[in-house]
């Protein structure tokens, strides 16, 4: 198989996966059975992980598969067990439709003069840092995986900030849910 045939075959798989992704998203948005919707968000994450692999982002793919399809699904199932399992009927509204079409149209108009998908001439690939990341990883960081090297070495402070955000979110969750347990114990104790 020639290189060109291979590229067009990959583009075909990309397109199929993307259509599957959009279809899953539409069903998630429309379903009123929340349990089924949570399961579909798991499938959504898995299909997107497949797409990330096709786009050469293997690290993003396995993080999305582990975190998006795993942890998010568990968190949502936990929430569903404490709240309602079904979404209630609601009237169709016109305003959100208009907003979405306007915003989407504006964004699509913004992409028209973007560099083509996969083009080597795009500014992002011509920037000197691109070469620095590839050659520097080998010569300075001595790791085969460029993404790991950039994450932990070149952008180490960024990753430190991310850890801080996760820590803050964890404290937030404990504060929000910790107060609940005390209060509900009081209510239980107060009612005869």
């Amino acid at each position: 198989m020639s290189a060109k045939q291979q590229t067009s075959g990959l583009a075909m798989i990309e397109l199929i996966l993307f259509v599957l992704l959009v279809a899953t998203a539409v069903v998630v948005a429309r379903l009123r059975d929340l349990f089924a919707a949570v399961m579909l968000t798991g499938i959504f994450s898995l299909v997107s992980a497949g797409l990330f692999t096709l786009m050469d982002a293997v690290d993003v793919a396995f993080t999305e598969a582990a975190v998006g399809a795993g942890i998010s699904t568990i968190l949502m199932l936990g929430t569903l067990s404490l709240t309602a399992r079904r979404e209630e009927q609601q009237p169709v509204r016109l305003l959100p439709f208009l907003v979405v079409i306007l915003v989407g149209g504006a964004l699509i108009a913004g992409t028209v003069d973007m560099p083509a998908y996969g083009a080597l001439e795009a500014p992002i690939h011509q920037h000197p840092m691109y070469n620095e990341f590839i050659t520097g990883t080998e010569q300075k960081v001595h790791l085969p995986n460029v993404v790991t090297a950039v994450l932990a070495s070149y952008r180490g402070y960024d990753t430190f900030g991310e850890t801080t955000v996760v820590f803050a979110a964890a404290i937030g969750v404990f504060l929000v849910l910790g107060g609940r347990r005390k209060k509900s114990a009081k209510i239980d104790g107060g009612t005869p």
């Binding site: 993003v60 942890i71 998010s72 990341f133 609940r180």
Partner: peptide
């Protein structure tokens, strides 16, 4: 392929799960 977007998006996924957890806690 360019590694920089991958690195930035790894951070975004993890932060996204943190915000999801906080949002769901508020829902509860």
């Amino acid at each position: 392929s360019n590694p920089l977007p991958h690195v930035l998006m790894l951070t975004a996924i993890v932060v996204g799960v943190a915000t999801t957890a906080l949002g769901l806690a508020l829902v509860v």
